[in-house]
């Protein structure tokens, strides 16, 4: 594992911690999309099925379990916590997730490495992760004002993806015969999804202003 990959994973972990702390400390999930959080739970469950049949490293196993547990903890807060669930913008968070899930699943059936249940589900999780942030970005666009923590959460999620891109470039030049097209193409799409957000985030940061999205 190279430094870019580790930095990417740590940024991913930090983004989740920031979101959990925001929810716990402010007892509010205003501006957070439950649809996106549920999509991430689907992504982790379908991708980490290999926890049951293969062992890669202790690091790998522990991180997978952390991602699964934190995803369900966030969902629990947003759905079940007495105070937090009342702050959820249900009326604004209306993205039709089936428009993401169905095409990703069909694509996973058509383009994969192996026609087995676990491999198709793993491929599905790669495709779905690429677009899972969309309900969150749409919610942000609707509510316009972005609070600092939600902004930082999304910025870190985007940074994690950018670091993974660098990790792949590094691996390409250091590992003989290393290539993984499905992951590369999806990962590039996923990183591009954040470009617009990055632009406004950096602009707000440079002007020392609160982040706002155009209407």
């Amino acid at each position: 594992m190279n430094i870019f990959r580790l930095a990417g994973d740590m940024t991913h972990l930090l983004s989740i911690i920031v979101l959990l702390l925001k929810i716990q400390a402010t007892k509010s999930c205003a501006g957070v999309s439950l649809k996106t959080q549920e999509l991430y739970a689907v992504v982790f469950v379908t991708r980490y099925l290999d926890l049951f049949y293969s062992f890669i490293s202790l690091y790998n196993t522990v991180m997978k379990i952390i991602f699964l547990l934190t995803a369900f903890t966030i969902i629990w807060y947003m759905r079940k916590h007495k105070v937090v669930c009342q702050t959820y913008d249900k009326e604004q968070d209306t993205f039709r997730v089936l428009f993401l899930i169905v095409p990703c699943f069909v694509l996973a059936l058509l383009v994969n490495h192996e026609m087995s249940v676990t491999e198709v589900l793993w491929t599905f999780s790669i495709y779905l992760e690429a677009v899972a942030i969309l309900p969150q970005l749409v919610l942000l666009q609707r509510t316009k004002n972005v609070d600092n923590l939600t902004g930082n959460y999304i910025f870190m999620l985007g940074s994690y993806r950018a670091l993974y891109l660098v990790n792949w470039v590094y691996r390409y030049f250091t590992e003989l015969g290393y290539r993984q097209w499905i992951v590369w193409v999806s990962g590039t799409v996923q990183t591009c999804v954040y470009l617009d957000f990055f632009y406004y985030y950096v602009q707000a940061w440079r002007n020392n202003e609160r982040m706002k999205l155009p209407g």
Binding site: R5, D50, I56, N60, Y178, R179, Q180, I182
Partner: peptide, 10 residues
Amino acid sequence: EEAEDEHDEL
């Protein structure tokens, strides 16, 4: 081995 490589990433 390719598949194993891919599954190593989170």
